[in-house]
Design a protein around this nucleic acid. Structure first.
Lengths: 226, 226
DNA sequence: CCCAGTATTAAAAAATTGTAAACTCAGGTC
DNA sequence: GACCTGAGTTTACAATTTTTTAATACTGGG
């Protein structure tokens, strides 16, 4: 996937800043949404699921720090990049910003160049790990955009959870995923499901693929092999 | 492993800044080395292998950007965190800094609080990934992420306890582990199991590896040799 | 040769995972 | 609204593997 074409949400109460940033980021190829205060930011974040959110710390309704903290409690936004905008010499807030879960922050007055550079750096950094691309492992092909798995020219239909589980395991072949890791990644941090749930999904995957590509590591977890 | 006790190298040509940063970071529990210019920084980096390097951009001999680029060409420093210090409104350099491979940068005049906060954030972020690493001892390779042991191209499957026991012994070759130490590390402080349990596991490891890499030290414990 | 400590076994006990079947629930259909 | 349908989950039990115990044999230093 391209580094560009990513979705960015900008939240600031100063229309001038919104406009300047939007203009510059759009020119770089990003898809930009804007919000005018903290609550608006939360609503827009939920509806558009951006890859990166730029939050001004000083905003009406809810501050950037508050918005950040709220977002971080939700699994969907666990990996969403957050970039804070803060007034100079506002040390207390700078620290609070990082502690609340922001990935980076930039001092005001903002320079478009710096913002673009930082946004690029953040996205590049995260891109390495979580890029959604087609995985090919031997005679197995897993396409997350089409939500499709192909084994030896035979197309297999997996349910959502089954697919996500397989994709997770196949994303790092050989690596053992602990049951906890799997729960966090596929189900989310706060969801509580029974012990056998993972097993049952693993079974279904093995059954449907008709392929012995998932190995059980007793007492530890599961891993993808090929 | 503790978040603290990490090694940090600070390179800046202004003694005042060096002193202030060193004082504040040492107080946080970090082990700090300093360098007065770019070339000094390279030498110190090679001798101390710090976890994180703070580089001033403007330095005699070699600039921070140059130092960063040189370090990044070397595999040993590939994962070393680099934090750039840059003068305000020095946009060109800020961008160069990030492009040259720095993980973050902070504007001068530096605030100790901000530095400490950023350093903490960077180390925390990197800490998650690199906790467990592959051990290689002669013709033996032990990979804790894959939960896999390879002896001379032959893959051996060990059970959980067996693996943990082998990993412990192999983590410090030659060193004798007392039976008590082994119990604490592998089984945990509160678990009560008989003395013969360790023997049995040792035996299984020896058997499965088909390799005489664990030596009994009568009356004391076991050690890994190679 | 004796003895504490260790090795070797086999078998019991415990822990973990596999499996089938039933249940829940949301969404679609008539 | 009653009725399907299928994903997701849970349950209860079977199957399997790991871990521990226990009983016995061995070993090397004094």
């Amino acid at each position: 996937m391209d580094a560009k074409g990513k979705k960015i949400l900008i939240a600031d109460d100063e229309p001038d800043i919104l406009e300047v940033l939007q203009y510059n980021l759009v020119r770089e190829g990003y898809e930009v949404t804007t919000a005018k205060d903290g609550e608006d930011a939360l609503i827009k974040a939920k509806s558009t699921h951006p890859d990166l959110i730029i939050l001004d710390i000083m905003m009406p309704k809810k501050s950037g720090v508050e918005v950040c903290e709220i977002l971080r409690t939700q699994p969907v936004f666990h990996d969403t990049l957050i970039l804070m905008l803060t007034a100079l010499n506002d040390e207390g807030f700078q620290i609070k910003g990082l502690e609340s879960g922001a990935d980076d922050y930039v001092n005001k007055p903002v320079s478009p160049k710096v913002i673009v550079s930082r946004v690029g750096a953040l996205l590049r950094r995260s891109n390495k790990e979580s890029a959604e691309k087609v995985l090919k492992r031997g005679n197995l092909s897993i396409d997350p955009t089409k939500f499709e798995v192909v084994v030896d020219d035979r197309q297999v239909t997996l349910a959502k959870k089954e697919f996500e589980l397989l994709y997770l395991l196949a994303s790092r072949p050989g690596r053992v995923f602990l049951r906890n890791e799997i729960l966090n990644q596929v189900w989310g941090n706060d969801v509580i499901v029974g012990d056998r749930t993972i097993d049952v999904h693993i079974r279904k995957i093995r059954q449907k693929l008709g392929l012995d590509c998932i190995t059980t590591v007793k007492g530890v977890g599961y891993k993808f092999v090929n």
